[in-house]
Amino acid sequence: MKAVLMKAAGSPEVLQLQEVPTPSIPLDNTQLLVRLVAAGINPIDTKLRKRGTFYPDQMPAILGCDGAGVVEAVGAGVQKFRPGDAVYFCYGGLGGHQGNYAEYTVVDERFVARKPASVSFAEAAAAPLVLITAWEALYERGRLEPGERVLIHAGAGGVGHVAIQLAKLKNAAVATTVSTPEKADFVQQLGADYPIFYKQTDFVQATLDWTDGGGVDLAFDTVGGETFQKTFPAVRVYGDIVTILEPDANTVWKTARNRNLRIGLELMLTPMLLGMDESLQHHGEILEQCANWMEQGKLKIQVNHQFPLKDAAKAHELIETGAIAGKIVLLISDE
């Protein structure tokens, strides 16, 4: 099969399209052989490419956590899927198990969900990592309740644009930071109540004005760096802030402590890194629920750029600009 290999860490040019053996599945297990139609591109892919994977002794590596495709073969223990079923999932691509920048992969059925019939393979492939991240951050770390007020940073981004929709599905009120009028229009189409132009406006003061001085119940930081610390005073006393980035070593925690904030750290890759199969099964369950919402028209994935598999390096160059809205996808085969 064709796959994009990374033989060493470095610039996007280290990603090279080559022929590699097609994986196979043992007949007595619960694994699926999936013919991949599309693979999602995420910032974690570029970080692993630049810095090296989590498993440097297992090189070369095939990156790509997100995939969507068609089941080609099933193990004897498989119960939910049959050959010909369309599926999507987040599994592999960290340097151990093969990722999805390839024509085929193997994944356990427990970690997989049916692809919504109403969305394309490209949209499905763009969805898993950001959906699971936003779900865990809002619903599990942040314990979001109906009627609460939420501040979501970078609402037009990959994680942000699905976080807005998941928050609205909980009947929350959503403020979100954006950089341009076009992005403001985009997030409002998704249901955001209050776009904040953070380059022209103090987002903390804007948030406090929006909440009559009290602060939001939950802030979701998808940016990191100084934005995380700056957000503390925008959160109500005894409120929550969840970040998907590692807090900077120089973070000053005084405001967070004085306001008695509950700090949540969200890394949806933890189950893969620690081999936690039950949690990976929960990821499959999250994707099943999100598939239902997508089919009902309640949840949409914005794919703004598509590249053929051979142009994975160009896709990495684009995502590293940090200026795009929505998601980037690799198209692997026609379907």
Score class of each variant (00 low, 15 high):
Q306S: 12
E13N: 08
A102D: 08
G155H: 02
L190Q: 06
L169C: 04
A325E: 13
D311Q: 10
E295W: 04
P181K: 07
P116G: 03
K2A: 00
W293H: 11
V204C: 03
E278S: 06
I196Q: 14
V303N: 05
F307Y: 14
P26Q: 12
N42K: 00
T30M: 08
V237K: 15
S11G: 00
L287D: 06
S11Y: 01
Q79E: 01
F121H: 12
Q229N: 04
D45W: 02
E109R: 01
V34E: 03
A291T: 08
V329D: 02
Q296N: 15
V187E: 13
G64C: 11
T227E: 14
P146T: 02
N29Q: 10
L245V: 11
G213F: 06
V78M: 05
P233W: 09
L33F: 05
P128T: 00
E246G: 02
D45G: 08
Y91Q: 06
L138I: 01
S279Q: 07
T243D: 08
T207M: 05
S120H: 11
S333E: 12
E123R: 06
I263Q: 00
Q18I: 07
R141V: 01
E140D: 14
G214V: 01
V242R: 00
P195L: 02
K300A: 00
A8M: 02
T30E: 14
M1R: 06
P233D: 09
V78L: 11
E182H: 12
D248F: 00
L318H: 08
H305D: 12
A102K: 05
Q18F: 06
K310E: 14
V252R: 13
W253S: 05
M59P: 06
M6L: 09
G322L: 00
I332G: 06
I324R: 14
Y104K: 04
L17P: 10
L144S: 02
A39G: 05
A192D: 09
V106E: 09
D66L: 05
